[in-house]
Amino acid sequence: MWPYKSMLLAAFVTVNAIPAHAGKYICSFSKSGIEFRPRCQMESTGMQICRKVFAPTLESSCTASVFPAEPRDQLACYFFNPQKFTEDALKSGTQSPREDLLKILAQQPGFIVGGVTNTSTDGNFVNVGYLEATGAEFLDVTCIRQP
């Protein structure tokens, strides 16, 4: 269990979006600038998840899905405690508009930080970073739309 009372949390979210169509994505996870291999590939045509386990109480996941209300993909990445935050919680929010998705997920037990965007063209991306405490290793995930 994390010492929540003494924990310093820093979260960095960067998104870049333009209107879109279903696409392919490559996600990379890193710790203190060192990328884990292999990279994860996913498509928005199905509910696919890229996942990296950093510790028993810390994971990061990304999802890409075709958003039914608009002709573009919804790309999202999160950090969460898998002992509290379930995959059902992750899937339940993916059909929500981008503006509501993080609000819905943030109410779920175990959710730490996340970012979401709508994508359209090659190079659109989402990047989420997490720093648990001063001096801790910086963790991040980046997913980029591919040609």
Rank of each mutant, 00 (worst) to 15 (best):
M1G: 12
W2V: 11
P3Q: 15
P3I: 13
P3R: 15
P3L: 11
S6D: 15
S6Q: 13
M7R: 15
M7V: 10
L8N: 11
A10P: 00
A10N: 11
F12G: 15
F12L: 13
T14H: 13
T14W: 08
V15S: 07
V15M: 07
V15G: 08
V15N: 14
A17C: 11
I18C: 08
P19T: 09
P19G: 10
A20N: 03
H21R: 13
A22I: 03
Y25I: 01
Y25N: 01
Y25P: 00
I26Y: 06
S28I: 06
S28C: 09
S28G: 11
F29D: 00
F29E: 01
S30H: 10
S30L: 03
S30V: 01
S32T: 05
S32D: 14
G33A: 05
E35Q: 12
F36K: 15
R37H: 11
R39Y: 07
R39T: 08
Q41G: 09
E43H: 08
S44C: 08
G46S: 13
G46D: 13
I49G: 04
R51M: 07
F54S: 05
F54C: 11
A55Q: 12
A55Y: 06
P56E: 12
T57I: 09
L58Q: 09
E59D: 14
E59K: 13
E59V: 08
S60P: 05
S60D: 03
S61G: 09
C62F: 02
C62P: 03
T63M: 13
V66N: 15
A69T: 06
E70P: 02
E70R: 14
Q74A: 06
L75P: 00
C77T: 02
C77W: 03
Y78M: 09
F80R: 02
F80Y: 12
P82I: 05
P82T: 07
Q83L: 11
K84W: 03
F85E: 00
E87S: 08
L90Y: 00
K91M: 04
T94I: 09
P97L: 06
R98P: 00
D100F: 02
L101G: 04
L101E: 01
L102K: 08
K103H: 07
I104M: 08
L105I: 04
L105Q: 02
A106D: 13
A106P: 03
A106C: 12
Q108H: 07
P109E: 10
F111Q: 00
V113E: 05
V113N: 01
G114N: 01
G115L: 02
T119V: 11
S120P: 06
T121I: 11
D122R: 14
F125I: 05
F125T: 02
V126W: 01
N127Y: 05
V128Y: 00
Y130K: 09
Y130A: 03
L131G: 06
A133G: 10
G135V: 09
G135E: 12
G135T: 09
A136E: 12
E137L: 07
E137T: 08
F138K: 10
F138D: 02
L139Y: 00
T142F: 05
T142E: 06
T142C: 05
C143D: 03
C143T: 01
R145D: 06
Q146G: 10
Q146T: 14
P147I: 10
